[in-house]
Simulated scan of single mutants.
Amino acid sequence: MAVKVLIVEDNPVARSFLCRVVRESFSDGMEITEAGDLEGARQQLARADAEAGSPGFKLILIDLELPDGNGMEFLGELANRPAVKIVTTLYSDDDHLFPALQRGADGYLLKEDRFEVLVEELQRIVRGQPPLSPAIARRLLSHFRPGSSGDSGPMGLNSGFGTLTSSATPSGRGVTLDPLPEWERLTPRENEVLTYLSKGFTIKEIANLMGIKWFTVNDHIKSIYKKLNVSSRAEAAVLASKQGLV
């Protein structure tokens, strides 16, 4: 059965972009419903609930600025729903971030991030981690856990997606700038994959360029993330550059 997704976004271009991000993020079938304002979102919620006989949407993406209200208000209305609720916005300041989390947001993504970054961060829900844009994750870590390099950040997430799967790269830990031990150095093949990742190529594009299967690329990325102790391609690229690995 397809996983039902609701995208609440008033800008048609941004809405289309987010639909692409969702479809790219998960390998399971996704049934995406769009709403351009709060009233439309409420109507779609009621319709999906009636059809399913229970809360119908498993994933809800919410913009904070809408024509007939704001996403903060909508987050409050969704508080008791089991869906994964993710804010998608241009605002990265504390005045928007922390109230959204306090009102029940399970994740916070910046629409200005690159397509590949958003896909990687959205895929975190499959691994039970909060989907956070890199800048937001750093802000939270510095605010709640200064100096920490823990695995999960300040909030947990139980996605409730059941068997939903993705081609996601694995979870890593916080970036460390300490020199890497010799045994953790990347292999030539991993260096090649990391170089392509740093240039913004997708997993499928890297597979085509290297003449290998996408799941082999995925395995290389898992190894890269583990060795570099990171959780996103942006972090991996920065650390690799500083360490002179690429």
Results as ranks from 00 to 15, higher is better:
M1D: 12
M1N: 10
V8E: 03
P12A: 07
P12E: 06
R15E: 09
S16F: 07
C19A: 13
R20M: 12
F26D: 03
T33D: 10
A35I: 01
A35D: 03
G36P: 00
E39A: 12
E39S: 10
Q43A: 14
Q43G: 09
Q44K: 13
A50Q: 14
G53E: 09
S54W: 11
G56K: 06
G56E: 07
I60Y: 03
I62Q: 05
E65H: 09
D68P: 06
L75N: 06
A79Q: 09
P82L: 02
A83H: 02
K85S: 06
K85I: 03
K85N: 08
L90C: 11
Y91K: 10
S92M: 00
S92K: 00
D93P: 03
D93R: 09
D93F: 01
D95K: 15
A100M: 03
A100D: 04
L101C: 04
R103Q: 11
R103C: 02
L110R: 05
L110N: 02
E112R: 12
R114V: 11
V117A: 11
E121G: 04
Q123Y: 07
P130W: 04
A135P: 00
A137C: 07
M155W: 15
M155F: 15
S159H: 09
G162N: 08
S167Y: 10
S167Q: 13
A168E: 07
A168K: 09
R173P: 03
T176Q: 12
L177P: 00
L186I: 00
R189T: 10
E192W: 08
L197P: 03
K199F: 00
T202A: 09
T202Q: 07
I203Q: 07
I206M: 08
M210C: 08
T216A: 15
D219F: 13
S223G: 08
K226A: 13
K227W: 00
L228C: 07
N229V: 15
S232G: 07
S232T: 15
R233E: 06
R233I: 06
R233G: 09
E235D: 10
A240F: 05
Q243W: 12
Q243I: 11
V246D: 08
